[in-house]
Design a protein around this nucleic acid. Structure first.
Lengths: 156, 156
DNA sequence: TTAATCCCGAAAAAATTTCATCAAATTATA
DNA sequence: TATAATTTGATGAAATTTTTTCGGGATTAA
């Protein structure tokens, strides 16, 4: 993974298009960024080996599969030992309803975005999964009323 | 978009696989979920027309393109009129550095996840973009120290 | 039980991707 | 500025993938 790839304006356009639609054919992509399919193909390979362009994923409508409720959860770990933090992070990775987790500056140790089917669902997760976990010291939950924007596309 | 599709266990496996790797061929997918390529293809089409399976996107390493800093920003709008809210939400959609935005219960109106290159970058965004916007009443920002987990895959 | 329907997998057809080659164009360098 | 190195787009062929078609078996309804 050569970390030192210099990105030019066509690379940027490729990244933009592919972040919006990862299923574009090379021909369509070439047309949109004003290049040839061969060149697009080469650039994509380079961006991939540089670790800039990573996975392809398909998105699923969360509400349609019973995870339409988003909860933002601020959390403190019981203590700040390396072991506790490692246990906590492993635990976070094991729970599919935890979509995102950030280690935070400020009053709380972590901030989580958790999806749930409804309030009762989340109550169960909070009381019997999160707060029961030995690494977790405390939590404060805030429900999202609605989703205004969700993007996976980083600015390029 | 027929909303009434009943999802069975093979559909669920397909969704799981495709959320993890959207570039799987139908043949590989068929093998993993224990079905045939044609059947997988048909199920995918149904899941798509039902609006359950949505876009294919490629992910980009945010840090490698200069957006490695995550900031969680709580925000109040200036007032709660329909117009102010609509203006605010249109503004949010127009800003690529705002990756996510939730309308929230509790003390704040919205919660944003914003990406930036560094602290100075964010300072500029906060002072000259967010707080300068006529719909924005106030904000409180919290920097993420690190990203513990980021998943686009909803539980199925 | 029969008939209609649905879902399946196999196979064929159509399209796309992958990757090599080459000459021209562009860029860097001496 | 001349030369070297790199990048580009066109081309094409092989491999792979997507999509359609089709007959048969399971399921359901009458």
């Amino acid at each position: 993974m050569k970390d030192n790839l210099v990105i030019d304006s066509i690379d940027r356009r490729i990244l933009t298009e592919l972040q919006a639609n990862g299923a574009l054919s090379h021909a369509e992509l070439a047309q949109r960024v004003g290049s040839s399919t061969a060149s697009c193909w080469r650039r994509i390979k380079l961006l991939e080996t540089a670790g800039i362009l990573t996975r392809t994923v398909r998105l699923v409508d969360a509400a349609k599969v019973g995870s339409g409720v988003n909860v933002i959860c601020n959390l403190r770990v019981r203590d700040h030992s390396r072991e506790t933090r490692a246990n906590f992070e492993a635990f976070i990775h094991s729970r599919p309803e935890v979509m995102e987790c950030f280690s935070m500056s400020g009053d709380w140790d972590y901030l989580l975005r958790v999806v749930a089917g409804d309030v009762a669902d989340y109550e169960h997760f909070l009381m019997h999964v999160l707060l029961d976990h030995p690494s977790v010291g405390g939590a404060s939950s805030h429900f999202a009323l609605s989703l205004t924007k969700y993007s996976t596309a980083v600015p390029v």
